[in-house]
Amino acid sequence: MSNRDKLKQLVIDVFLLDETEFRFDLRRTEIDTWDSLGVVSLAVGVHETFGYHPTPEEATALAGVDDVIALLAARGIALDA
């Protein structure tokens, strides 16, 4: 599975989305379950999936899927890998 597919599956699983609801430009404001608990789950999931554990500040600042992509890229984790 590519990193792109891993991220898609992670977001679907963390926020309990239907596959058809997923977009790479989804914003936090569009997802009801991306609340404070979702922030925690997403941080745990990013760590499990990509091996990088976001700090609480980083996890809280994520405002959309593109921010997760940027965070991973800044840690050398490319999505096209």
Binding site: D13, V14, L16, L37, G38, V40, S41, V44, G45, E48
Partner: peptide, 13 residues
Amino acid sequence: PCTRTSSVLVRPD
């Protein structure tokens, strides 16, 4: 809410 703060991500599968 408790599941969502689990130490291991609990996924549908």
